[in-house]
Amino acid sequence: MDEVIRVEGLTKNFGQLQVLRGIDCSVKSSEVVCVIGPSGSGKSTFLRCLNGLEEASGGRVLVHGVSVHDNSTDVDALRSEIGMVFQRFNLFPHMTVLDNITLAPTKVRGVALEQAREQARALLIKVGLLDKIDAYPNQLSGGQQQRVAIARALAMQPAIMLFDEPTSALDPEMVGEVLSVMQTLAEEGMTMMVVSHEMGFARRVANRVLFMDEGVLVEEGTPEEVFDHPREERTRRFLSSVL
């Protein structure tokens, strides 16, 4: 299996604060990796370093062998290969659902508008929201907005999808619809990296679980290894507090 992302010695400081203290890991094609850990452990920062939303302070991130944080890298081209779904959805409120989805393919990839619309319809069917195609984001529930956001990211046909706590801002009854879309994606073979507090999802869907605490990768392994037989004391403490 080929490697989509490789992270080597990644560090990140915000001023004096060391948020990431040397992370090494890799994600292979079609792998689903869940990142768990307590709040403030650096999970989101780690994810945001992967597509260059955050500058790395040290180390490097390679996507398909290209260094994300190099000055000479065309970061826009790289990002179009990396889909990202945010905690707060971040749909564009002045555009309809359709326009939200077709914007990037037409402007970045130069896909013909009609073709982009056709693809958008297919994606909306996939996330179960074809009837909302002409709605504006503020007419949708949180769960619906997040599903549109997933469709928007998928429209770029990315090599990997990053999910940054995709269900944390949702009302409990809407969590399920988003997770089931994500599970379908995983089953279709999408490479995914998910920062989440949804332990059930991680156990069910992930190939691999990373446990992060205080800016370091404490432990990694299959869901069974991490959830059922954690080797590290910190992992055990965290799991007992959330499960």
């Binding site: 939303l53 990002r79 179009s80 990202m84 945010f86 971040n90 770029m156």
Partner: peptide, 12 residues
């Protein structure tokens, strides 16, 4: 978040 969403889609 609007800017981040847009940039993450590859828009300059």
């Amino acid at each position: 978040g609007q800017i981040e969403a847009s940039r993450s889609l590859g828009l300059s």
